[in-house]
Amino acid sequence: MGDDNPHSGRGSAAKSWLERIAAIFTAEPQQVSDLEDIIAEANSRNLIDSDTKGMLQGVLDVSKMRARDIMVPRSQMATIDIDQPLAEFLPILLENNHSRYPVVNEDKDHIEGILIVKDILKYALTPDIEWELKDLLRPAVIIPESKRVDALLKEFRQKRYHMAIVVDEYGGVSGLITIEDILEQIVGDIEDEHDDEEGDDIRKLGSNVFMVSALTPLDEFNESFSTGFDEEEAGTIGGIVLHAFGHMPAKGETIQLEGLVFKVTKANSRRLVQLQVIRPKPTEDAELQR
């Protein structure tokens, strides 16, 4: 007897897809690449749309990242000095338009606490009330650069805080990270109609020129370019390049690492987005070694 159900084919496909997911979660060992294959197949079968695929991939990417990979670097941190009067730090609030600011004592290595902008509204609008900035501060949450981003997101949600100060192995402040920074990795930036569509992590533009997403996993980059960047130092190639610059580079800045030239082609105030990677020709290699 034939199957008269017009949706039976799609139902079988969905069942097969779900069975494969169940198999991956119950099999040993589990591999992220298996999940990525399932997500791609589900998208190709129209079981999930491209936006859902992107968010699922974002979740998997976040699971590989450390705080140092997506933090706002120290040089880009907007801070308030604890001794500044309202008239002096109000322009900082207006210029940056953040909801939270680290409050420092003399320099960025001495964080006194976190100021939530809404906490000063009643005082700013009522000049007769006496107040001191130190009395409005919330405790600063301190995390190491090596903190896993997925674990940090869980802590953000459970403990209901939104910002953490990132410190290096010596206790110096190296940056900050917010819950919005993590969510951006999952749902992506809000792009306008002039932004280029994202493609593969690594795209070949010429015989020696490549366009590379800054979020390309470091193991994938090392395999593609036969490099030996330390995966303990960063989880993505963008993290490696950012550390090498020592500051948030602007569009067009270049740096040479392991014989490759990295050019920043897209970045915002918080992170690197896209890199152009140039592999020097043999003659260029010889000149670079002189």
Score class of each variant (00 low, 15 high):
M1E: 13
M1C: 12
G2Y: 11
N5T: 11
P6D: 13
P6V: 10
H7Y: 14
S8R: 11
G11M: 14
A13L: 15
A14K: 09
A14D: 06
R20Y: 09
P29D: 06
Q30T: 08
Q30W: 10
V32D: 09
I38W: 12
E41Q: 13
M55K: 07
M55I: 11
Q57M: 14
G58D: 03
K64S: 15
M65D: 01
M65Q: 04
A67R: 01
R74K: 13
F89W: 06
L93F: 05
L93A: 02
L94M: 13
R100C: 10
E106R: 11
K108Q: 13
I114Q: 00
V117G: 07
I120W: 01
L121M: 14
L125H: 08
L125T: 12
P127Y: 08
I129F: 09
W131M: 09
W131V: 06
K134Q: 14
D135A: 12
L136C: 06
A140I: 05
V149H: 01
Q158P: 00
K159W: 09
Y161V: 08
Y161R: 03
Y161C: 03
E169P: 07
G172I: 04
I177Q: 02
T178G: 04
E180K: 07
D181H: 02
I190G: 05
D195G: 07
E198R: 07
V212C: 06
S213P: 01
A214R: 00
L215T: 07
L215C: 11
P217F: 03
A234T: 04
I237G: 00
I237E: 00
I240K: 02
V241Y: 01
A244N: 09
L260H: 01
A267F: 02
R270D: 04
L272V: 04
Q274C: 12
L275F: 01
P280G: 06
K281S: 14
L288V: 12
R290H: 11
R290K: 12
